[in-house]
Computed example of a mutant assay.
Amino acid sequence: MKLGLQLGYWGAQPPANVPELIAAAEAEGFDAVFAAESWGSDAFTPLAWWGSSTERVRLGTSVVQISARTPTSTAMHALTLDHLSGGRAILGLGVSGPQVVEGWYGQPFTKPLARTREYVSIIRKVLSREEPVTSDGPHFPLPYTGPGSTGLGKPLKPITHPLRADIPIWLGAEGPKNVALTAEIADGWLAIYYSPRLAPMYNEWLDEGFARPGARRSREDFEVAATCQVIVTDDRAAAIAGLKPITALYVGGMGAPELNFHAQVYTRMGYGEQVEEIGRLFRAGRKDEAAAVVPDEMVTETMIIGNVDEVRADVKRWADAGVTMLLVSCRDADHVRELSAAVLG
């Protein structure tokens, strides 16, 4: 099992202790460091700035939002970071959700699977640098010839020669069709709310993608990086109670009532009744009551919590289920060292 340090995205201000976290992660054998974006800080700049002090860990985006940049722009960012890091970049992509895509980026959210396929295809053309990049669209036509076009668009290929034509592309995916697409066209899956209990279901989705003509990878060389809070504690009950408000937030407050991908994930796990009640209470502003509805199992399904022996047993269970990397958040360098000793030691 590998460990990835998830820095996430910034809150109101940049986090103060990231350099010490990254230094500890590299020293303690973490495989990668990831940065995210929502509608504040971006994902690439922190990796370039803080990653410049590293020598070994891979630097990944988890995730870059597809609607934030054209595919050629994202390819430029990725090849630049890959050069600066000496070939350590991982490009993690995701479609986000309609509230962000349409409300923040001013782009349509429809046809996310088709947009993702086209987006990844263009990035791979840029990175291969075999010929000027063209695309028939319809989502990202190159050259652009639509309304307002001058007709002067010219197919181009990157001036800078990519260090690697095969920069790993990992996709953030939650639903069955998106996970199958990920197995077909990507090098890894960034899984959120992964549950080892449901591994047979995930494997069915992944196998569908691996079996498609032209699939890029097989299970043997495909990475599954699962976001997983790992808490080493002798007071398991208290830790679970402390995480219930966060679970309630994502189930009840992240996304529109009509379309909340996180809620759909937990519904597939079998918590449909609780999901409905959590959403109702959360939208009514009764957040404490919403958290109280969350059963312990809803927390422990997707997180590893317990003493060192319990954590190690659970890590093995996740590895046996097909997870190759745990993406963990850490509060300080001591926390990094604690998780390294428990998971990697």
Rank of each mutant, 00 (worst) to 15 (best):
P200N: 03
G209R: 03
Y193P: 01
A241V: 09
F222V: 07
A239P: 11
Y194V: 00
W205M: 01
N203V: 00
A237Y: 03
Q229K: 14
Q229V: 12
T247V: 12
A191P: 08
G209T: 05
R197L: 10
Y250L: 15
L249C: 03
M254V: 15
I240P: 13
L249S: 15
T227Y: 15
E208T: 08
L190R: 00
G252K: 09
S195M: 01
G252C: 10
A239C: 08
T233Y: 09
L206M: 03
T227L: 14
Y250P: 11
W205N: 02
R216H: 02
E204Y: 01
L206S: 02
A238I: 06
N203R: 09
W189Y: 08
L249R: 06
S195L: 00
Y202W: 08
D234I: 01
R212S: 12
A248W: 14
G209I: 04
A215P: 04
D234P: 09
F210K: 01
P196Q: 07
W189D: 06
A226N: 07
L190W: 02
A256L: 15
S195P: 00
G253N: 11
L249T: 11
L198I: 00
I231C: 10
L243K: 05
A239G: 12
C228M: 08
A211S: 15
Y193T: 06
L243R: 14
P196H: 05
R219Q: 13
I192S: 09
A199M: 09
D234H: 11
G255Q: 14
A239H: 12
P245K: 09
R216A: 09
A241W: 00
D207M: 01
D221N: 15
E220S: 15
I231W: 06
S218F: 03
K244Y: 07
P245V: 10
M201R: 04
A256N: 03
M201L: 10
G253P: 13
I246R: 11
L206V: 09
D207F: 04
A191G: 08
A199S: 15
P196L: 12
R217P: 12
V224E: 06
S218I: 05
G209Y: 04
L249Y: 15
G253H: 05
D207G: 04
Y250I: 08
I192F: 08
R197E: 14
E208N: 05
A248H: 06
A248Q: 07
N203W: 11
D207S: 12
M201T: 13
E223Y: 02
N203D: 10
E208Y: 07
L198E: 15
E204S: 06
I246L: 13
P200C: 00
R197M: 04
Y202H: 05
I246G: 10
S218V: 13
M201V: 11
L190P: 06
R219S: 12
R219A: 15
R216C: 02
V232S: 13
E223I: 01
I192G: 04
S218P: 02
T227Q: 06
A239Y: 10
A199G: 02
A248M: 12
V230E: 11
A211K: 04
A199T: 04
V230M: 08
P245N: 01
A237Q: 14
R219L: 01
R216G: 12
A226F: 03
W205L: 12
W189R: 02
E208I: 00
A238C: 09
Y193W: 09
R197F: 02
I192E: 10
A225K: 01
K244W: 05
L206Q: 03
D221Y: 08
A191V: 03
P245Y: 12
L206C: 02
E204F: 00
